[in-house]
Amino acid sequence: MSRFLGYFDWKRTDGLWFAVLLAAAFALPHFIENDYYINVLVLVFLYAGMASAWNIIGGMAGQFSLGHTAFVGIGAYTSTLLFNYVGVSPWLGMIAGGLLSMLMAALIAYPVFRMRGVFFAMATLAFGETVRILLMASRKYVDMPYGLSINYDPGFIRMVFEDRSSYAMLTGAFLIIVTIFAFGLSRSYIGSYLRAIRDSEEAAVASGIPMRKYKMIAFLISAFFTSIGGTLLAQYILYIEPSSVFSTAISIDLPLMALLGGIGTIAGPVIGAVIALPLRDILLETFGQSAPGLHLVIYGIALIVIVIVLPHGLLGGVKSIRERFVSRSHARSEREEPK
């Protein structure tokens, strides 16, 4: 055990953060009774988990995928189809979907990892669209309705629950597992390798890092957890269709949340989800009545402003303020040192 722990860089405050996260995920669902807020909480947990999963490839490794909806969709469809047609429990279907997503990720990795930056983004965007179009086209050959409903028949084995707080616990657990995984990665040599690749591919390779292998590791882990999120989304909404789980909007939302909070950090995607989802909800509440779409116009503009003002997200903003403060006091102490 201690040998295993030696692979990670632990800090004293780590335990504290986990206590906070754990308390939030399991205590909040009990304290919040209002259905509306519980709904927001479920979605925040779920999206925070998926954004954290995206962040492993998109933030830590710096390969910003805009095609993660493919994994959400595969997760949702695999578990739902397996349950509806074969009777397999979503708990198993969830794993099956995750594995299928990993397979898809491995297949698409070869072409897309030949690109960097916006080209990688565009290619993955096209990948997400392609999966949706292929799924829709496949309905010509297999007998499948456009949308799939999951029977509302509560039961743990069927992963359908009566009360929303159970969903909050479920998605909270998902968030915690993804966070622990991402945290462990980032504090091990793998995280260090991913950051190295993000900062300078040339120097990373020159340091003996087999780049493709590590990008692939990050991509597979990311795809797996995103796909799990897809299953949970399906089990919560109990209805899926190609345009809802395979949508560019999801592909954009996940990186967006990571970016808002602080891309490449562990807390960033969580903070981003905590901001973005309620923000959109509040905008919808306030402007939804006056004109359809107005709330998203404002959301889009808010996004532009936030990204320009805080390019490294909220955490980045806080850090730069702190650094300015520290460097000022640093400069003072350096002047006093005789050189």
Binding site: F64, V118, A121, I252, P255, L256, L259, A291, P292, G293, L294, H295, L296, V297, I298, Y299, G300, I301, A302, L303, I304, V307, I308
Partner: peptide, 17 residues
């Protein structure tokens, strides 16, 4: 990327509006 994506969301919904 995200500034232009934000603009794309805004313009799309402006048209919808």
């Amino acid at each position: 990327v995200f500034v232009t994506l934000g603009l794309s969301i805004a313009l799309q919904n402006l048209a919808l509006m």
